[in-house]
Simulated scan of single mutants.
Amino acid sequence: MTSIRSSVHDLHDDSIALKPAVEDCIRPLKDRFAVSCDYDFSERMSRDVKLCFIGVIKEALSNTAKHSDGDSIKIIIREHPALYQLSIADNGSCPEKIDESGIGLANMRERAASLNGNINITSGSKGFRIFLSVPKQNLTERRS
């Protein structure tokens, strides 16, 4: 029974394809921004991480579309032996101090915290940047 549950769980995790989901998120922005994506991760990434990354990417791209005066966006998704990383950056100029009162940034922080991850959000003359890391160890412990 444990083996069957594990197999079903793995199938469900695999049902979310991260790369096509990201491509769907960026498609509406391609007329206004040059968007580049760098992917380096295995398909064994957990469903929770995939959903977290998709949610953060959607929110970041929505904010960029609304507020950025830049013309390019770079998304990087990497898997390392001990953690997963997501980086999103645009080349627009924005205030050094970010308005933290919006629900979007709070949602990103909550998504990161739900996986014991760290998120760093910065802004300034070189653009808006989000850097998110999620340790793999915590994901393993959450499933036990």
Results as ranks from 00 to 15, higher is better:
Lys30Val: 10
Asp24Val: 14
Met108Tyr: 04
Phe53Cys: 05
Asp99Glu: 12
Gly102Leu: 03
Leu86Met: 12
Leu29Trp: 05
Asp24Met: 07
Arg47His: 13
Cys94Ile: 13
Ser46Phe: 15
Cys52Met: 06
Val35Trp: 10
Phe41Arg: 05
Val49Trp: 02
Glu59His: 06
Lys97Ala: 15
Val35Asp: 01
Val22Ser: 02
Pro20Gln: 04
Glu59Val: 04
Lys66Asp: 11
Asp38Ala: 06
Gly102Ala: 07
Ile88Ser: 02
Tyr39Pro: 01
Gly55Asp: 02
Glu96Pro: 14
Ala60His: 00
Asn107Ile: 01
Asn63Gly: 00
Asp69Pro: 00
Ser46Asn: 11
Ser62Asp: 14
Leu61Ser: 00
His80Cys: 11
Ile57Pro: 01
Ile57Phe: 02
His80Asp: 14
Ile88Tyr: 04
Ile54Gly: 08
Lys30Ala: 06
Gly104Trp: 01
Leu29Arg: 03
Asp40Ser: 08
Leu105Phe: 12
Ile98Val: 12
Pro81Met: 08
Ala82Lys: 08
Met45Ala: 04
Ile54Tyr: 15
Ser36Glu: 13
Met108Ser: 05
Cys25Ala: 13
Ala106Ser: 11
Gly92Thr: 04
His67Leu: 05
Ile75Pro: 02
Cys94Tyr: 13
Leu105Tyr: 09
Pro20Lys: 01
Tyr84Asp: 15
Asp71Asn: 14
Lys97Gly: 15
Ala21Thr: 04
Ser62Asn: 13
Asn107Ala: 00
Asp38Lys: 06
Leu83Arg: 09
Leu105Ile: 13
Ile77Tyr: 04
Gly102Cys: 13
Glu23Lys: 07
His80Pro: 14
Glu96Ala: 08
Gly55Ala: 03
Arg32Glu: 07
Ile98Thr: 11
Glu43Met: 07
Val49Glu: 05
Glu23Cys: 07
Asp69Thr: 09
Ala34Cys: 06
Arg32Met: 12
Asp40Leu: 09
Cys25Glu: 13
Ile26Asp: 01
Thr64Pro: 08
Arg32Pro: 10
Ala34His: 10
Cys25Asp: 12
Cys94Asp: 09
Leu83Trp: 07
Leu51Met: 15
Ser72Asp: 04
Asn91Asp: 15
Asp48Glu: 15
Leu83Ala: 14
Val22His: 09
Ala65Val: 03
Asn91Tyr: 11
Leu61Cys: 05
Met45Val: 10
Asp90Leu: 03
Ile88Arg: 04
Val22Pro: 11
Leu18Val: 03
Asp40Val: 06
Thr64Ala: 01
Ile77Pro: 03
Ala21Tyr: 00
Gly70Asp: 02
Asp71Thr: 15
Ala65Pro: 02
Glu96Asp: 14
Val35Leu: 07
Leu29Glu: 04
Ser72Gly: 11
Gly70Ile: 01
Arg47Val: 03
Glu23Thr: 06
Gly55Glu: 02
Ser93Tyr: 14
Pro95Leu: 09
Ser72Val: 03
Ile73Val: 06
Ala34Val: 08
Asn63Lys: 02
Val49Lys: 00
Ala21Lys: 01
Tyr39Trp: 12
Glu100Cys: 10
Pro81Trp: 07
Ile98Leu: 13
Ala21Asp: 11
Glu100Gly: 08
Asp48Arg: 13
Gly104Glu: 03
Asp48Leu: 15
Pro95Arg: 06
Ser72Cys: 11
